Amino acid sequence: MSLTSHVAELRKKHQTLSAQVEEAHRSPAADGLEIAKLKKQKLQLKEEISRLST
């Protein structure tokens, strides 16, 4: 897997997590811990993307 395709895959995962976070925020039964976990994963992906892109 090339670096470019790896970064593209990470961006895709980041976008998926963003959608999950937004959906969880709209849900009345949203679990705060689950939202925090998703946000942490999203941040880790963003940091990795940034690190690989430089």
Rank of each mutant, 00 (worst) to 15 (best):
H6Q: 13
Q15W: 00
L45Y: 02
E9R: 14
A19F: 11
K37M: 11
A36I: 00
L45D: 02
L45E: 03
L10R: 12
T54D: 05
I35Y: 03
K13N: 08
E9T: 09
G32M: 11
L45R: 02
S18L: 11
V21H: 02
E34Q: 11
L38H: 06
A8G: 05
L38R: 09
R26H: 11
T54S: 15
L38T: 08
E34C: 05
E23W: 08
L17D: 02
A19L: 12
V21C: 04
K13D: 06
E47S: 10
K12W: 03
V7C: 01
V7Y: 01
E9I: 06
I49K: 03
R51S: 11
Q44Y: 08
A29I: 04
A24Y: 00
R11V: 01
L52A: 07
H6E: 08
K39Q: 15
E34I: 07
K40D: 15
Q44G: 11
K40W: 00
L52P: 02
S50N: 10
E48N: 07
I35R: 07
A8K: 12
K37I: 01
H6P: 03
A29F: 11
S2I: 05
E48S: 04
P28G: 02
E9H: 14
A29R: 15
A29H: 14
L10W: 09
K37A: 12
A30Q: 06
L45M: 05
G32C: 01
I35W: 04
E9S: 15
H14Q: 15
M1L: 10
K37Q: 12
R26M: 07
L52M: 13
A24T: 08
E48D: 14
T4L: 13
L17H: 03
R11E: 15
V7D: 02
E22D: 15
A29W: 12
L33F: 12
L52E: 02
Q15H: 13
H14K: 09
I49Y: 01
M1S: 12
Q41E: 10
G32E: 15
R26A: 08
A36C: 05
R26E: 05
E48F: 01
M1C: 09
